[in-house]
C-alpha cells in the first residue's frame, strides 16, 4: 500500500479537528439545554416558596411602629460558565452585533439563583432591605479581551425579623 501523501495527512488532521469541534458543540448544546431548563424549573419553584419574604432595594422600608426582633446580613453567590455551543453562538453574534440571548439567560439564571441563596440564608426573616446584586468576571479568561470566562454573581442585603 502506498504511503499517504502529505496533503492527505493534512486533510485527515483537519477532519479530526472538525469532528472534535462538532462533538463539543453537540455535547454543549444537548447537555447545556437540558441543564438550563432543569435549572429554570427549580428556580421558579423556589421563587414561589419565598413569596412571603420580599427583597427590596429600599433602605428604609420599615414603619416606626413595627418592632424589630433581629437584623442579619445575608448573602448568596453563584459562579457560572458558558457552554461550548453558547460560546460559538456568541462568537457569531459578534459579527453582526445585537442582543446576545445565550449570555442573557445564563446571567439571568445566576442572578436569580444568587438572590434565592440569600433568601435561604435569611431563614424566617420578614423582609430583606437594600438588596444589592453585583456581577464580576473571574477565572482564566477574565482579563482576556472578547472572552467571557466564569461570572460570579453576589447578592446581599439586610434581613430583618419583626416582633410578632
Amino acid at each position: 500500500m502506498a504511503q499517504p501523501s502529505g496533503s492527505n495527512r493534512g486533510k485527515e488532521a483537519h477532519m479530526e479537528q472538525l469532528i472534535t469541534f462538532v462533538v463539543l458543540i453537540a455535547i454543549g448544546y444537548f447537555a447545556g439545554t437540558a441543564a438550563e431548563s432543569r435549572h429554570y424549573r427549580s428556580i421558579r419553584e423556589r421563587e414561589r416558596q419565598f413569596l412571603n419574604l420580599p427583597a427590596v432595594t429600599a433602605r428604609n422600608f420599615l414603619d416606626d411602629r413595627e418592632e424589630v426582633a433581629g437584623t442579619m446580613l445575608v448573602y448568596g453567590n453563584v459562579v457560572v460558565s458558558l457552554d461550548y455551543f453558547k460560546r460559538i453562538l456568541a462568537g457569531l453574534r459578534n459579527i453582526f452585533g445585537g442582543e446576545v440571548k445565550s449570555y442573557l439567560t445564563l446571567i439571568d439564571r445566576a442572578r436569580r439563583e444568587a438572590v434565592l441563596r440569600a433568601k435561604k440564608m435569611a431563614g424566617n426573616a420578614d423582609i430583606i432591605l437594600n438588596l444589592r446584586i453585583e456581577t464580576s468576571s473571574i477565572g482564566q479568561n477574565a482579563n482576556r479581551k472578547n472572552a467571557v470566562g466564569s461570572i460570579e454573581v453576589l447578592a446581599y442585603g439586610t434581613a430583618v425579623t419583626l416582633k410578632k
Partner: peptide, 8 residues
C-alpha cells in the same frame, strides 16, 4: 465544566 456550562 466549560464544555457543558452551568454552575461551577
Amino acid at each position: 465544566k466549560n464544555i457543558i456550562g452551568g454552575e461551577l
